[in-house]
């Protein structure tokens, strides 16, 4: 699965889906554990992404988008 490409929002949506499926109690135990592993990985990934994210601030100029000058 192309988990690397998943956007933050998609990851959250998938996580909600996983939790929903696990809650339904319909999944076989094997599948349940598989979901648990996928979900746990997603949680870790999302948290890490949030923690490591740095503000990206751009300014539109005639030459395109450049870094926003530091503010006083």
């Amino acid at each position: 699965m192309a988990e690397k490409k998943m956007s933050f929002e998609e990851a959250l949506a998938r996580l909600e889906e996983i939790v929903g499926e696990m809650d339904s109690g319909k999944a076989e135990l094997d599948k349940l554990l598989e979901l648990f592993e996928e979900g746990t990985t997603l949680v870790r990934k999302c948290k890490k992404e949030l923690d490591n994210a740095e503000k990206k601030i751009k300014l539109v100029t005639e030459d395109g988008e450049t870094d926003f000058p530091p503010m006083k």
Partner: peptide, 13 residues
Amino acid sequence: GRRFPLAEICVYP
């Protein structure tokens, strides 16, 4: 930036 650093903020002057 503080609330959601994942988003890129682009300023049109």
